[in-house]
């Protein structure tokens, strides 16, 4: 069953059009990756899904209902959660307080502070520290944990690997199967093609605001992906 579907999305920043007729689908229980170069429109697509940006045309459907007209907090209440690019943790709040804000909408589900600390044990010894004092990897783990605290049906991860050491990125990606096992569908936006393809069931490649390629990773060749990624 389709959990999220985008039809004819044309989001814009003022006069600059960032997305052109984007069509995308995420089924329940899937891991879908969206890859593409800088400025391809990946993050804009996520912002449009969660409601930070609006598309003047087309439709965003979530769990079978149109949500394009709903404000962000109502979409989060319905079960979508965005882990934004650049972590964007709340620096003056402690790790625990960050997690509590993550659970703001109080949706029922498996994710609690204890579960998050089990998923990311590195956060446990830092629970009483201001989030601004954490390392980049710890902040990213906190940002993912904070997103999970909303007990979302769909977790959207924007550039998890950005600015992190490869070993830290591998550690974070290792948590993804446990998140899916707990019943959460995942939509990942990534520039790191290797990491994204290693976990994704399906992949979309964005180029200049359009879907240039889509399919199952094992069915796509390196040449096809490179051509769609770089537009050559």
């Amino acid at each position: 069953m389709s959990l999220l579907s985008l039809t004819d999305i044309n989001s814009r920043y003022g006069t600059f059009q960032a997305l052109f007729g984007v069509e995308l689908r995420v089924d329940e229980g899937e891991i879908v990756a969206v890859i593409g170069a800088n400025g391809a429109g990946k993050s804009t697509m996520l912002k449009t899904v969660v409601g930070i940006m609006r598309s003047p045309t087309g439709e965003v459907r979530f769990a079978g209902r149109p949500v394009g007209h709903l404000p962000v907090h109502q979409r989060v209440s319905l079960g979508m959660s965005l882990v934004p690019e650049g972590r964007r943790v709340f620096p003056s709040l402690t790790v625990r307080e960050n997690l509590l804000v993550g659970g703001w909408v109080k949706r029922p589900g498996p994710w609690t502070v204890t579960k998050i600390l089990q998923l990311f044990p590195l956060l446990e010894r830092r629970i009483d520290h201001p989030a601004g004092n954490l390392s980049g990897g710890e902040q990213q783990a906190l940002a993912i944990g904070r997103g999970l605290m909303a007990n979302p049906r769909l977790l959207m991860l924007d550039e998890v690997s950005l600015g992190l050491a490869p070993i830290v990125v591998r550690h974070l990606y290792a948590a993804i199967p446990a998140i899916v096992e707990a019943g959460t569908t995942i939509l990942i936006v990534e520039q790191d093609i290797g990491q994204a393809l290693s976990v994704a069931d399906r992949v979309y490649c964005f180029l200049e605001g359009k879907v240039a390629l889509s399919g199952r990773p094992r069915e796509l060749t390196r040449e096809q992906i490179a051509a769609a990624y770089f537009g050559v």
Partner: peptide
């Protein structure tokens, strides 16, 4: 405090 630190992040977590 969350809004003061990062309004967009707070909003995307469901804070009205």
């Amino acid at each position: 405090t969350a809004i003061r630190d990062d309004e967009t992040s707070a909003e995307s977590l469901g804070v009205h």
